[in-house]
C-alpha cells in the first residue's frame, strides 16, 4: 500500500475512533433514564416496624426501590442480590447514603415482621415496606407499573406478578433511573456510582 493510500484510510479511521470515544463519554446509562418521564417519589406505606411512613422518610438520601413479594423464590432474590452486591461495591460515602427499599405488593402474606426478616438477609441498608391495596396501587400507578395475583392452588399458595425493574431516585426524591433485571452487577454498580457522584 502506498503512503497516499494509508493517509486516505487514516482519516476515516481517526474519525471513527473520535466518534466512538465521544459515544463512550456520553451521559448514557446502562439503565433507562426516567428523569423527565416519571414523577418524584410520593407514597404512604407501612414500614417493617408497622409504622405508617411517607416519602419524607427518604428525604436527603438517594433511594433504590424494588417491587416484589417475599414468597418469590427466583427473580426477587436474584434482583435484590444483584442490587445489594452493586451497592456494596460503592465507596464508603455513597454506600452509606444509598437507601435500598423493597416494596411488597403482597400485603396479605408479607407482614412487617416478615419483611424485616427478609430485608435483613440482604442488607442493613434495605427497608421493607408494604401497604393497603389502595396505597400500593397509588404508588405503582405513579410509576406506570402493575402487579397481580394468580389463582391459588389447593394449599392456598398463589403467585404474584410484579414489575421487574428497580427504580432509583436522587436525594431530592426525583426519579432518575430504571435498572432492568437483565443488567449485570457491574452495570448496576457503574450507574449507581455515577448517580451518587453527581449528587
Amino acid at each position: 500500500m502506498t503512503r497516499r493510500a494509508w493517509l486516505r484510510l487514516a482519516t476515516p479511521v481517526a474519525l471513527l475512533c473520535a466518534a466512538l470515544l465521544a459515544a463512550c463519554g456520553d451521559r448514557s446509562w446502562n439503565g433507562k433514564d426516567i428523569s423527565h418521564l416519571m414523577p418524584a417519589l410520593e407514597f404512604e406505606l407501612t414500614d417493617e416496624s408497622g409504622a405508617v411512613v411517607d416519602q419524607s422518610l427518604f428525604a436527603g438520601r438517594p433511594v433504590a426501590i424494588y417491587f416484589g413479594f417475599t414468597e418469590c423464590p427466583d427473580v426477587c432474590p436474584m434482583t435484590l442480590a444483584k442490587l445489594t452486591a452493586a451497592a456494596r461495591r460503592l465507596p464508603p460515602g455513597p454506600r452509606e447514603r444509598l437507601q435500598l427499599a423493597f416494596v411488597s405488593v403482597d400485603p396479605a402474606r408479607d407482614t412487617p415482621a416478615r419483611l424485616a426478616d427478609y430485608t435483613e438477609a440482604f442488607s442493613d441498608a434495605m427497608l421493607g415496606l408494604t401497604g393497603s391495596q389502595a396505597q400500593l396501587q397509588a404508588l405503582t400507578r405513579r410509576y406506570r407499573i402493575t402487579y397481580g395475583y394468580e389463582e391459588p392452588d389447593a394449599q392456598g399458595n398463589y403467585e404474584v406478578s410484579h414489575s421487574s425493574a428497580i427504580f432509583v431516585f436522587n436525594e431530592s426524591l426525583e426519579a432518575e433511573l430504571m435498572l432492568l433485571d437483565n443488567l449485570s452487577i457491574d452495570q448496576m454498580h457503574s450507574d449507581l456510582e455515577r448517580l451518587l457522584e453527581d449528587g
Binding site: 406478578s161 414489575s163 421487574s164 425493574a165 432492568l180
Partner: peptide, 8 residues
C-alpha cells in the same frame, strides 16, 4: 419477564 412484568 414480558414488558417489564415478571411472572412464573
Amino acid at each position: 419477564i414480558r414488558d417489564g412484568q415478571a411472572r412464573m
